[in-house]
Design a protein around this nucleic acid. Structure first.
Length: 472
RNA sequence: GCUCGUAUAGUGUAGUGGCCCAUCAUGAAGCCCUCUCGAGGCUUCGACCCGGGUUCAAAUCCCGGUACGAGCACCA
């Protein structure tokens, strides 16, 4: 009898290929030239989730080998592990800092030269480009091993080669179909001091070399990264073949665009913050993890969001509302209700009504109630004035504030109101702008950081000087 | 130019030859519930890029086209 294959909708992340019972070792390797952003959270969530679900390990690696274009920011070495733990819910199993492992990279560079599968190239970038396009060997390619070793010494000698004079190349094949793979560069000279190790080294590995060597040293089993790095995989596979190593299984994802965030690069944000365009890395307009956290976005929501997007190689554009929808699920049941009146106008109440009382803080949970005390009347939003309304949890009134009924008597609109209260403001990050809405906030003693639901408006988080909009 | 990759509802996503006149989420519309324009419940709307081919059978395999994206840095 034939068994019928039953297919079900796959839940969560797809299986990791070629696991063969192994515990996976995964890594996430940001450049500490700034704090973590929304974009980084994908790598953290996906790699972290696999490590967690499969009992494997997550390595957090600082790829800080560029002191020129993307100079490391010392504060990031502290903030990144913290934010990683906040996001993943557990600390990384290992932390690796590339700039402190330079011996290993230099050692492998030397092995490459000695093994004859690497060479020091003194051609200019433009000259080499011509060879790459023409599929011809550059003059340095056929140098003896001894010559290469000697030139390697000159690269490391402050009195000899200077930045731009020479690079270390991996010997692949100049006739490879893919131009990106032809004798790719593995290391170059940099003389800007590194904030962690100063001028101890002057030849620094490039990503494809450093990452490849480190992945092998750390026993990484699976690499999950953007498909823009597909050629990196191919380059590194060529290098692994030279060393006789086996390349990890690799999975790619496509590009994600979030319209609301526009285009931000870590370098650009760093400049803009320094220039005073943003208050700091947690400015609510920024797509940083610090800002998202400040804005009341929960790590659970971020995790659910990325896991739902999965690992397709499609380039996608997602609206933030999807993330917000996950966040609402994460916060609604614990967010006390509170009233905030925009464009407040007073409404004098006449007639009989309970002038003092308490109302519920959440429809579904038994949170402490809110007490109110009404003297003359209440504040309502201007848009709600001038018509018969029901003051939520209080009474029905006509347009002039005459109490018509304590119980709800008809289908008139139910609005929120504030008795007493104090002036406050609600700050809303709207793209590049920060909108500030003035209003009257219901009296409360929620501590800073509490996420509340502003009735009929949306969620807000309590800050020192008012409320910050979470989302609606 | 060369190389590589991707194409399922508005947006994401499941689906690896028959279960698919296609899954789930989100979105929109409507209803129910609820003294919030929130949450929850229900209903409805809405898609396999195009053209060939293979096959009894194709979203799924092959070929061609088109569109979009990425790499070809002494960035990561």
């Amino acid at each position: 009898m034939l068994e019928r294959k039953i297919q079900k909708r796959r839940e969560g992340l797809p299986e990791l290929p070629n696991l063969d019972g192994r515990k996976p070792v995964l890594r996430f390797a940001p450049n500490p030239n700034g704090h973590l952003s929304f974009g980084h959270s994908r790598g953290l969530v996906i790699n972290g989730q696999y490590a967690k679900e499969l009992g494997g390990e997550l390595i957090l690696r600082f790829d800080d080998t560029d002191t020129t274009v993307k100079p490391p920011m010392m504060a990031a070495y502290d903030s990144i592990p913290k934010q990683q733990e906040w996001l993943c819910g557990f600390p990384a199993h290992r932390i690796v800092i590339a700039s402190e492992r330079m011996e290993f990279y230099h050692d492998h560079a030397r092995q490459m030269l000695e093994g004859g599968f690497g060479y020091v190239c003194t051609c200019s970038g433009d000259d080499f480009k011509e060879h790459r396009v023409a599929m011809t060997k550059c003059p340095c390619r056929d140098n003896e091993i001894s010559t290469n070793l000697e030139k390697w010494g000159l690269m490391n000698d402050p009195a000899a080669y200077q930045p731009g004079d020479a690079v270390l190349r991996v010997k692949t094949d100049m006739t490879l179909k893919n131009p990106a793979l032809r004798d790719w560069p593995a290391a170059r000279i940099q003389i800007n001091p590194h904030p962690r190790v100063g001028n101890k080294w002057r030849v620094w590995p490039l990503l494809d070399f450093q990452s490849a060597v480190e992945d092998h040293l750390q026993g990484v089993t699976h690499i999950i990264r953007g498909k823009d790095l597909m050629d990196s995989t191919r380059k590194q596979t060529l290098l692994y073949a030279h060393f006789g190593w086996t390349y990890p299984d690799t999975i790619y994802w496509g590009r994600v665009k979030v319209h609301e965030f526009g285009v931000f690069s870590t370098s650009q944000m760093r400049r803009d913050i320094d220039a005073g365009l943003f208050s700091d890395w947690d400015d609510p307009r920024l797509p940083t993890l610090a800002a998202l956290s400040r804005r009341g976005i929960k790590p659970d929501a971020l995790r659910a969001f990325w896991i739902e997007l999965g690992l397709t190689q499609k380039d996608i554009a997602v609206p933030l509302s999807t993330l917000y929808s996950h966040n609402t699920k994460a916060i609604d049941s614990t967010s006390p209700r509170l009233a905030f009146i925009r464009n407040p106008v007073p409404l004098v109440l006449t007639g009989n009504l309970p002038r003092k009382g308490s109302i519920t803080s959440h429809p579904d949970t038994d949170m402490p109630t809110r007490d109110y005390s009404i003297d003359e009347g209440v504040w309502i939003e201007k848009e709600d004035s001038g018509k018969s309304i029901r003051l939520k949890d209080l009474c029905d009134v006509d347009k002039d504030g005459n109490v018509e009924s304590i119980d709800r008597s008809d289908k008139r609109g139910i609005i929120h109101w504030v008795a007493g209260g104090k002036p406050s403001k609600l700050t809303i990050a709207a793209g590049q702008d920060l909108l500030v809405v003035e209003g009257i906030l219901e009296d409360n003693n929620h501590p800073i950081g509490t996420i509340v639901q502003l009735e009929r408006i949306g969620y807000g988080i309590v800050e020192e000087d008012g409320l910050l909009m979470v989302h609606d």
